[in-house]
Structures are given as structure tokens and as C-alpha cells.
Simulated scan of single mutants.
Amino acid sequence: MDDEPAENISGGERGGGTFAESAPGDGANRAEAVVDRLGERYWQKTYGGRDAFECLVRTILSQNTSDKASQPAHDALMERYDGADADLAVALADAEQDELADTISSAGLYNQKSATIIRLAGEIVDDYGSADGFDEYVKDGDPNGVRDALLDMKGVGPKTADCVLLFAGGRDGVFPVDTHVHRIARRMGLAPADADHEGVREAIESSVPPEKCGFGHTAMIQFGREYCTARKPACLDDPDACPLADRCDQVGVYPETGELVDPSDAYEAE
């Protein structure tokens, strides 16, 4: 994977949404307490308002890569295909794959991603008429039905579907789970150590108030980049270096020996 950028753009100024403040919980729920503290450290935002099809494309471009690599690909795609009088879904459904692949090459896996984008654009034009029609469905449709419809699209997984629901639909109670969230929630003990991505999502969404899920997702990603990294979490060298040390079970992290394993491996070893 490419080096992570300095800031998670979904939570920063470029990520859209509106800065807001939410009331802290009473601390009885550890997952909410963690999200509250992350919000104080990074940002509290309400999300929604992005164009749903563009958000879908943006999330596909981000798969298996970083913001640093996928953002230029997104910008190049929008410059080439999002004309003033053209519907983006229609334009991409008619795109030549080799041209689109070249346009998004900085995102990696460009042949696979270009084929997925063209196919999804065609499905959306067939089923919703246009990007605008799809946007209306995502924002006004039943959220469970919208999520199911997104997951029925080949190439769209739970994280992509949830990002569309959050950043385009502005739906409360949606906590997308990427690799950072999956790792951190299990290390901290907010979800079972052997939980898959859907298990982590269900555990967090059942514990965190709906209005806090959006900024909890983006702030947890930033925390994963700064402190709870995959290969060298801050607590591995200094147990007091992590600002959430008092809320963490350190599953799979052993500062005494310097050993680090996946939480699921630590669970199996017990």
C-alpha cells in the first residue's frame, strides 16, 4: 500500500460535511467514550450531501490504496468525464476502458477498477436513469433497502455501500469499517477479536449513538494513521504514548516483549 497521507480527507476540510458538536456520553459505554475522545482530538462532523454516484466512484478508486494515490485519480476522472452538460453515469457507461484506466492509473488496479466503474455506471443508467436518479434513491430511499441494492452490485462491498450511505445519504447510524477500523476496534476490545468486518460494524453501530457514527468512522481512521498503526502502534514502545491507552485492551499487542499479532491470532492462542 502507498504511504498514508497526513490527514484523512474524509474528516478534514476536503471531505465535505459540516462541523458540529455532540454531547459526550456518560462513559458507561466504552465504544461511545472512545468515539467521544476521538471527536475531541480530531473533529466532529455531520456528513451527507455528496453526489451518490461520484461517492461510489470515489470509494471504488480508494479500494486497496490510500487517499494520496486515489485522490489524483478521482480528480482526473472528474475533469475528463464530468462535463457541464453530461451526466457522469452516462459518460462513464460510454467510456472506453483503456482511456478510463489510463485516467485513473494513479489509484492502482486501474484495469480492474475501470471495468468495475464502467459496469456500475451502466447498471445505474439502466436502473435509475442517470446519476441524479441514483442520487435521489440513495438520499430518499429506505436505508436498509439502499444498502441491499448497493451490495447487490458486483464490486460493491459493505464498506463501499456504507460510505455511500454516510457521505452521500447522510444517514445516521452508519459506521463504515475499513482496515483501520477493523484493526482498532478489535485491538481495543470494542468488538470480538475474531470478528470480521461486518461483525465489527454491528458491534460498533449497536453501541455508538447514531449521530456519532459518521465522525467516529473518520476520526478512528485518523487515529489509526497517527497512533494505532498496523505494524507499530504507539503503545508498543511506550505504553503511555497512546491517548486512548486507558480505554484499550491491547489485544494482540505486547509491550513487554515487543510482540505484535493480529487480534484474532491472540484470541486463538488463549
Score class of each variant (00 low, 15 high):
7 E>R: 14
9 I>G: 00
10 S>Q: 13
16 G>E: 11
17 G>E: 04
18 T>C: 09
21 E>K: 14
24 P>T: 01
27 G>N: 13
32 E>W: 00
34 V>G: 05
34 V>L: 01
39 G>W: 06
45 K>Y: 04
48 G>E: 01
48 G>A: 00
49 G>E: 07
55 C>G: 10
56 L>F: 07
59 T>P: 05
60 I>H: 11
70 S>Y: 10
77 L>K: 06
82 D>N: 15
83 G>I: 10
85 D>P: 08
88 L>Y: 12
89 A>N: 07
90 V>G: 14
91 A>N: 08
92 L>H: 13
94 D>T: 05
94 D>C: 02
97 Q>L: 12
101 A>D: 05
108 G>I: 03
115 A>D: 13
119 R>W: 01
139 K>W: 03
142 D>R: 04
142 D>T: 09
145 G>L: 07
146 V>N: 05
148 D>Y: 02
154 K>H: 14
160 T>R: 03
165 L>K: 02
168 A>N: 04
171 R>K: 12
171 R>I: 15
171 R>G: 06
174 V>R: 05
176 P>W: 04
179 T>W: 11
179 T>R: 02
183 R>E: 08
193 A>D: 11
193 A>T: 11
199 G>N: 10
202 E>M: 04
213 C>L: 06
213 C>Q: 08
218 T>Q: 11
220 M>N: 08
226 E>R: 08
228 C>E: 02
230 A>N: 12
233 P>Y: 07
236 L>A: 06
242 C>W: 07
245 A>Y: 14
248 C>T: 03
249 D>T: 09
250 Q>H: 13
265 D>K: 15
